[in-house]
Design a protein around this nucleic acid. Sequence first.
DNA 1: AGAAAAATGGGGGAAAACCCTGAGTTTTTT
DNA 2: AAAAAACTCAGGGTTTTCCCCCATTTTTCT
Lengths: 210, 210
Amino acid sequence: MIKVAVTDDHPLMAEGIRNVLFGNDKIQLTASWHRAIDTLEDQALEHIDVLFLDINLPDMSGIDLCKALMEKYNRLRVIAITSHQESWFLKNMMKAGAKGFLLKSASPKIILEAIITVCRGKEYIQSEMKDLLLSESLNQTTKAPIIPKLTRREQEVLQLISEEYTTQEIADKLFISTKTVETHRQNLTLKFGVKNSVGLVRVALEMGLL
Amino acid sequence: MIKVAVTDDHPLMAEGIRNVLFGNDKIQLTASWHRAIDTLEDQALEHIDVLFLDINLPDMSGIDLCKALMEKYNRLRVIAITSHQESWFLKNMMKAGAKGFLLKSASPKIILEAIITVCRGKEYIQSEMKDLLLSESLNQTTKAPIIPKLTRREQEVLQLISEEYTTQEIADKLFISTKTVETHRQNLTLKFGVKNSVGLVRVALEMGLL
DNA sequence: AGAAAAATGGGGGAAAACCCTGAGTTTTTT
DNA sequence: AAAAAACTCAGGGTTTTCCCCCATTTTTCT
């Protein structure tokens, strides 16, 4: 008997997985949470074999939660689920210890396959994502694979840039010189590996930092 | 007996709703589609009472699909479902003829309530969204309520801007002058009501145009 | 206490974006 | 065929961003 759980802020997602597993006597959905903190605190995880984990949680990024879970429960297998078809996501989740990666558009067949595969100790990555990785590596446009760690000031500046403020306006708001704002902006583009503020806002939005 | 259908590119969403309705002998899920085109072409919609419609579909925006459906099947009630908690979405869906609006985080109880309410000819808007509308009107920061209609060229330019290309590079790619690109950029910022390219990319991403 | 990281700020210049006005051409719609 | 919309391009200017170089002070971590 394989015990499965779900952490996703959309209850329908848990219902969907429950339904997929319905009638299967070898795999059972035994728990579901909506927030990262609930997941971390519930001792029931001790006995879970496979956790489906969404990346977009209200209180913590799925990546950080995955890291924390892997430290605490080394027996647990995490399958990341997301609707965003982006490679930096996959790379970070795998780095954080996830064993599987599925899109929310996955079919019931795929979901069962993934559960069984990770239980056997192997990785399971949906073929659509593999294709994406391949095409990206061919395009050599692979983006910075990690989520950059931003300082407090950088976050503030990034936020204001995304709100369409100019360097001068940001400097006034933060009571610093325009030169300092420019330095932060420069460091941000370096950290994100982008060419300009547009890229900055785009990747920050895609990473859920704004 | 109320007949319900779902159009959502995430199969799990349909499974979730199916599960919510399981055991209910007055409401039945009788069909589900993943793409807008499939929904439009299926004559089965003639006999559907309530359609749950996601806004993010692979081939057409849910808003356009809703409009098309309302013209074709005036008996049909559409309930929009989305994970994005944004008001322009709601306004446009309602304008397009939707009778209900739910977040994907809706509970089974809410879902049943919504189905019954729209069947009685009334509108159903989830309370979270009502709160959002209220707070936005208080903040007087209501964004441009309509999705601007972009021309083909404007979409192309917008896409390239979001990919961090400069005006010169965009001009080269499209075989037009930099001045023309600037004009398109200018028109885009006017249509979106933003101050610069950063705002352009931000709202376009939020509206799901990129 | 010492090292590392973060935050601050400057000069100067090149590139790009932004803003305005105007106008001809092509495509689509009525 | 006429009108409307979309696409095209230009001059000429201002503002902002971007990109080097560099340095000092403040905060945080070990």
